[in-house]
């Protein structure tokens, strides 16, 4: 294509640049952006912390339970955490608006808390994590899930053992 043809074509089709910031920028649905953590779904297996290549994810014990922190200024947005999470507790949204003023740099954190609870069976204090029941057969009903969830790890194991159908 020679220069004049290109020139004519560009005159006809107009500028190719996006109007951003005056207009919206092209943002595909699958864009790997800001991390969102859903404590309700978290099993507390901490695999996301282990596969995170940047060390952006930190779990810590606190008096209220276990805290989750993902530091967006350390995160490389690779998506390993979401890929390896067994229960879809961690997600990457397509929100890429992460520019911020220097004063807010310690606020660029996705924070979550897996709270403590009292075991409905033995009364011990335990984390209210989602139960690891992906491979349990037959699958648990909604009510059974609630019952497992209300127990501490030891009582959960006991519950699932008693539920097993003798083969």
């Amino acid at each position: 294509m020679n220069f004049l043809t290109l020139f004519a074509r560009n005159l006809r089709t107009g500028p190719q640049t996006e109007a951003f910031p005056l207009g919206p920028a092209f943002t595909p649905e699958k864009l790997r952006g800001r991390i969102v953590f859903n404590a309700e779904n978290c099993e507390g297996c901490r695999i996301c912390e282990r596969v995170c290549p940047a060390g952006a994810i930190k779990f810590a014990k606190s008096p209220d339970g276990m805290t989750f922190d993902c530091w967006h200024n350390t995160c490389v947005f690779c998506g390993n955490c979401e890929f390896y999470c067994p229960t879809d507790a961690i997600h990457q949204t397509n929100d890429w608006n992460l520019a911020h003023v220097q004063a807010d740099k310690f606020a660029m954190v996705e924070h979550g808390l897996i709270p403590n609870m009292k075991c409905s069976d033995c009364g011990a204090t335990a984390l209210n994590t989602a139960p690891m029941v992906k491979n349990v057969k037959p699958p648990l009903s909604e009510a059974e899930l609630g019952e497992v969830r209300s127990r501490c790890p030891k009582c959960r194991a006991k519950y699932l053992k008693n539920r097993k159908v003798p083969s």
């Binding site: 092209f26 595909p28 649905e29 699958k30 864009l31 790997r32 947005f77 998506g79 990457q92 397509n94």
Partner: peptide, 11 residues
């Protein structure tokens, strides 16, 4: 970007 979520580091 649309298929993998990033223009360069497609992961």
């Amino acid at each position: 970007e649309s298929v993998f979520g990033n223009r360069q580091d497609i992961g």
